[in-house]
Amino acid sequence: MTDTRLVYRHRWPVRVMHWINVVCLCVLLGSGLQIFNAHPALYWGERSHFDTPLLALEGGQDPAGRPVGTTRIGSHSFDTTGVLGASRVDGEWTARGFPAWATIPGPGWLAMGRRWHFFFGWIFVANGIAYVGWSLASRHFARDLVPTRRDWRGIGRSIVDHLRFRHPEGDDALRYNVLQRLAYLFAIVVLGGGIVLMGLAMSPRMDAVLHWLVDLVGGRQSARTIHFVIAMAFVAFVLVHVFEVLVSGPLNQLRGMITGWYRVRADRKEVPHD
């Protein structure tokens, strides 16, 4: 039997801010879909051109009077009845973009959905600023997230290992590989920063400050579309992240992110990892 030992891997600021992000992202997604359902269509430019949306989730009826949900992407349409465009609410079919189970705080409470979205949005922003500040002060960014030359040289092997679901052990398990580093940096800088900026760009009150950003992306409707796309990219990132946790030892990974302590093979001397 292989000997193992517990290593203190994640400091408490990382753990606290990680779980704050988990709560914020869940509420922001649900409340964001609630807001989106008020007008489930996306456009490019300054104004809504209703006849030619980039994306539209539509509900209606077929010739026999049965409910039909349709997802329209450009000139292409897909039947998504029961999921997108038309779904059941309290046993009754209704036209709605996303189903009720995916929205917060309820199937049709737009005003409260906006309050939840803005409230948790500012918590998300404050938490992100705190994380970046702490990471720079503690050198967490430079030490643990920015790829080194060694990382870049091993990127091919890292890709193959991920495709084969082969995960590092011992000392190697105590540091992020190059794909993890790139994924986390992308999520923090591009997705996190982008979704906040696009959210601000949608606000008419920010015209005096961010009018240049609104003009740069082509208008408020463009900002809304980019905001939605980034939100879906966040969903994809989280799904991949959760999948990797499940296949690499969920109990050990959760213990590390809850208590800070992570179990590794004791075949070599371990170096604590933040």
Rank of each mutant, 00 (worst) to 15 (best):
E244D: 13
V264H: 04
L174H: 06
I226Y: 02
L216W: 14
L179F: 05
W212D: 14
F165D: 07
L239S: 14
V229F: 03
L246A: 12
R220I: 09
V264D: 04
H241L: 06
R175P: 00
V217Q: 09
D207C: 12
P204W: 07
G256M: 02
N252Q: 03
R255W: 00
S222K: 06
N177P: 04
L200Q: 04
A233V: 00
V190R: 02
A201P: 04
L216P: 08
A233E: 07
V196H: 08
P250A: 15
P168Y: 11
G218K: 10
V190F: 05
L246T: 05
I258C: 12
V229R: 02
V247N: 05
W212F: 15
L179W: 07
S203Y: 09
L182R: 04
V242N: 01
M206C: 07
V240E: 06
F237W: 09
L254G: 10
N177K: 08
G219I: 03
N177C: 13
G256I: 01
V209D: 11
F234C: 12
I188S: 08
V235T: 11
D215H: 03
L182H: 05
V178K: 06
V214Q: 11
E244T: 12
N252Y: 02
I226C: 08
L185C: 09
I188A: 14
A208R: 15
G199D: 10
V245L: 13
V229N: 03
S203F: 09
G256N: 05
S222G: 09
V242W: 04
Q221E: 15
I230H: 03
R255A: 15
I226F: 09
R175H: 11
F186E: 09
V235P: 03
D215R: 09
I258F: 13
Q180L: 07
V217D: 09
L216G: 04
L251S: 12
M257E: 04
V189Q: 07
Y262V: 02
A236T: 11
V229W: 00
L213S: 11
M232E: 13
I258Q: 01
D215A: 13
E244M: 15
R263K: 14
G199C: 11
F237D: 01
D215L: 08
G249P: 05
H227G: 12
L210Q: 06
